[in-house]
């Protein structure tokens, strides 16, 4: 099953490979007889924006779930900062520094936007029952800190006017922004977004992409799944193309765009 032990698959065989923050190395995931992810390998450079594209059913979301510990991998390795993280629980993967969103946003609907955001802050004394009862001073200080960060982040995402609304009342696009905001509160090393602009209205899409680029300018590493070729080509430093559970191509957008195999996968084998 784990025949893909070698990282030398032509995609990441250069010297830059050692600088990758996230390394996906021959990851395999099977569901019964179906091989959803079949030996995918690529790297995500620190402080880059990497797009993960591919037709429906290519295994992109499954791969996300493999990286974040939702699924156990059947082979291969996932490394963050050189340390293997495959096989860890989603909780532990998140604590190691991988933040993610979902294709269908999983906001806390019965909580306000502010509560949603503050939830994600790490190392809260007040999250322990005894801490909550016995250390009001510490909690007040920490909470002031957390709320200040919430305010900053909401302002950055232009959600500040909705801070006290319940998440159940948000539009689809606003929910995606809120999920991104929560991930920012987690303050991870890498941000993984599953179709961040799908189903979001065009003006909000541009906003969201601008936010992502600004985050990247501030040194954030971003890996995102996207269907829209234009979005990927305009916003990514590097593109990874998946097809039938495998890495079809990877590299800078302009090179990948002209790759025959990619065109074929997307356009369904048009002869040229």
């Amino acid at each position: 099953m784990s025949s893909n032990q070698s990282p030398a698959d032509g995609n990441s065989g250069d010297a830059a490979a050692s600088a990758d923050l996230l390394e996906v190395d021959g990851v395999v995931k099977q569901f019964g007889g179906l091989v959803a992810v079949d030996g995918v390998s690529f790297g995500v450079e620190e402080a880059s924006i990497t797009g993960l594209i591919g037709p429906n059913g290519a295994g992109k979301s499954t791969l996300f779930n493999c990286i974040t510990g939702v699924y156990d991998v059947d082979g291969g390795a996932v490394r963050l900062d050189g340390e293997e993280i495959q096989g860890l629980s989603p909780t532990k993967v998140a604590r190691r520094g991988v933040g993610r969103t979902f294709q269908t946003p999983k906001t806390f609907r019965g909580m306000t936007v502010r509560e949603n955001m503050a939830f994600a802050a790490r190392h809260q004394t007040g999250e322990r029952a005894l801490g909550a009862l016995l250390r009001p001073g510490t909690i007040r200080e920490e909470e002031a800190d957390v709320q200040a960060r919430v305010d900053d982040t909401l302002e950055f995402l232009e959600l500040d006017h909705l801070a006290d609304d319940y998440a159940s009342g948000l539009s689809g696009g606003q929910r995606k922004l809120l999920e991104l905001g929560r991930v920012l509160m987690l303050d991870p090393e890498i941000i993984m977004l599953d179709e961040p602009v799908a189903g979001v209205n065009p003006s909000l899409t541009d906003d969201l992409l601008a936010r992502l680029r600004e985050l990247n300018d501030r040194g954030r590493t971003i890996l995102f799944i996207e269907h829209d070729m234009d979005v990927v080509m305009e916003n990514c430093d590097r593109v990874v193309v998946m097809h039938n559970g495998q890495t079809l191509a990877s590299g800078p957008p302009d090179i990948v765009q002209d790759d025959e195999r990619v065109v074929e996968a997307y356009l369904g084998g048009v002869d040229r």
Binding site: K106, T107, Q124, G126, R128, G131, A132
Partner: peptide
Amino acid sequence: APFGRLLKGVRESEAA
């Protein structure tokens, strides 16, 4: 306290 927020978040979405 944040403990209550933690409980509610788990109530709303364990996956998240």
